[in-house]
Design a protein around this nucleic acid. Sequence first.
DNA 1: GTGATTTCTTGTCATTTGGCAAGATTAAAG
DNA 2: CTTTAATCTTGCCAAATGACAAGAAATCAC
Lengths: 203, 203
Amino acid sequence: MNVYIHDKKMDKTELILFLTATNHISREKAEIIADHFKPKSIARNQFLLTEGQLSDEYFFMRSGFLRAFAYDTDGNDVTTNFYAGNQVVFEVSSFFNRTISKENIQALTDCEGWYITYAQLNMLFHSLQEFREFGRSVLVKGFASLKVRMLSMITETAEERYAHLLQTNPKLFEHVPLKYIASYLGITDSSLSRIRKELTKKQ
Amino acid sequence: MNVYIHDKKMDKTELILFLTATNHISREKAEIIADHFKPKSIARNQFLLTEGQLSDEYFFMRSGFLRAFAYDTDGNDVTTNFYAGNQVVFEVSSFFNRTISKENIQALTDCEGWYITYAQLNMLFHSLQEFREFGRSVLVKGFASLKVRMLSMITETAEERYAHLLQTNPKLFEHVPLKYIASYLGITDSSLSRIRKELTKKQ
DNA sequence: GTGATTTCTTGTCATTTGGCAAGATTAAAG
DNA sequence: CTTTAATCTTGCCAAATGACAAGAAATCAC
């Protein structure tokens, strides 16, 4: 073992911590897995994924903010999701079904992290059952949070949805234009502006 | 091989067809997998899953209609999903995270199908990589359809959402009280009633 | 720093939706 | 069959939201 390799591994501390966090993966296995990840930087406004392409990178984002968006039938830009640091980012349907993506994923700030390709992921899934558990838990977590969001769309007012987002994800608002947050919440930007006005009145 | 066993296997035709449909699983493997499933019938109004319990059955429904629902903070019953025949039904989060469910799943009509438990599923996942692929595709499909529904909540009017549901799932309306459909669409039952009135005017 | 562009707010008005309650219709229970 | 309960519709009015446009504020590009 030489110093250079050692340093490179140390580099991936956050990735290794993330892999071990769910308790499915031991430290040793996590290091083996992390070795397969390559570093990736995305400059602000650059795309991690563009509509029409295949989502082929399983990207662990260490730092930064990403926005996923699609276009509706009238051609309007609709924010489908935000991603902050310390999570895995990819478009589930395109990635696992090997179909082209209808979604774009764009950097709101400079982003840093590591990725592996679909082929590598499958190879690792095949050889490490611990990593399969991890992969499943990533899927299940994403699924569950989308269900929570759907329930909030049904049961909560726009004002409540906004207040919750502000509460649970305050740092988002430092980097994201409000019009993007508005479409994420399912309202227009002028409605959001009025809601914000109301809320400042109340406090 | 005796006639009794043979007949029992023939019984599971729909299950085997479903397992092979995604092309991950060969006919032979599908029969092996299907052998582990036990038949399950749910009478109308009975529960497949009750709030507070663990979702421990991976239930393939051959025929019938199910409704998943939760209670919001005001205690109102909110329909989170409908399930028609020919699909796998379970509560993702409770099932895979081994936590108690916040959702109920109740039969709208008599239902028939087969199930395996979480332990059996994991055992089969472990030994049959083809079945793992199948399991992943079940998760991915559910995830993708929830994303589509979320996008429609953001971009479409209640009238459009209703019209689409009527178009894509007409049989649902034969078995489901409209108030359940209303909360699934994110509106009140009186709003739905007015929307239906408008639509009959238009045609 | 300055002009251009984007973002955000605000006003006006129309439309959608909700809350509530009463009545009509349908389904369920005995 | 009859009574009871559940479901659905409708009316009224208030509240929330959207569409559109204009102006203010902030940000970006050079």
